[in-house]
Amino acid sequence: MTGPIQGYAAPAERTARRFWSLFAIQTAAVCALVYLALPAFVAIADSLGHAVELPPHRLIGMAAALTVFHAAYWSRLRWAPMPIMPKNILLTHAFLFLNRLSFVFAAAFFSLVSFRHLPALTSSPEVFAMAARGALLLAMLFSLFCYSLEFDRIGKAMDDEAEDGR
Rank of each mutant, 00 (worst) to 15 (best):
Y73K: 05
W74M: 03
P81H: 14
W74Y: 08
R78T: 08
K87D: 04
A80R: 01
F105A: 15
H70R: 15
M82D: 08
R76M: 15
W79I: 06
A72Y: 01
L66R: 00
T92E: 02
L98V: 05
F103T: 05
S102D: 04
I84V: 10
A72L: 07
V104S: 07
A80G: 05
L101I: 14
S75C: 12
P81L: 12
M85W: 02
N88A: 06
L66A: 01
T67Q: 14
A71H: 04
L101G: 11
W74T: 15
P86N: 09
A65C: 02
L96P: 05
I89H: 14
F103K: 12
N88Y: 04
Y73H: 11
R76Y: 03
R100F: 05
H93W: 12
L77H: 09
L101M: 15
A80E: 01
I89Y: 07
A65W: 00
H93Q: 14
W74V: 09
S102V: 04
A94S: 13
W79D: 04
M82K: 04
H70F: 03
F97M: 08
A71K: 05
W74F: 09
F97W: 14
M85S: 02
R76K: 08
L66V: 01
L90Q: 13
K87S: 11
P83N: 07
F105H: 13
I84Q: 12
L91N: 06
S75P: 02
I84W: 03
R76G: 06
A94M: 13
F95G: 04
L101R: 13
A71E: 03
T67F: 03
N99D: 07
A71M: 06
L77E: 14
V104K: 12
Y73T: 05
A71G: 11
L66C: 02
A65I: 00
M82A: 10
A72N: 02
L96T: 07
H93P: 03
T67V: 02
L101T: 15
W74S: 02
A72K: 02
M82R: 12
F105P: 02
F103C: 06
I89Q: 13
T92W: 03
A80M: 06
A94E: 08
A72C: 07
S75W: 04
P86Q: 15
L66P: 01
P81E: 11
W79N: 04
F95S: 12
A94R: 15
R78C: 07
F105E: 09
V104H: 13
L101A: 10
A71W: 04
P81V: 09
A94H: 15
V68K: 01
A65Q: 00
T67K: 09
Y73D: 09
F103E: 13
F95I: 09
R76T: 15
S75M: 13
Y73C: 07
A72I: 07
L90D: 14
W74Q: 08
V68A: 10
N88M: 05
P83C: 07
F97P: 05
R76F: 06
M82S: 07
W74I: 08
N88D: 15
R76E: 03
A72M: 07
I84P: 04
P83T: 08
L90N: 15
W74R: 11
M85N: 00
Y73V: 07
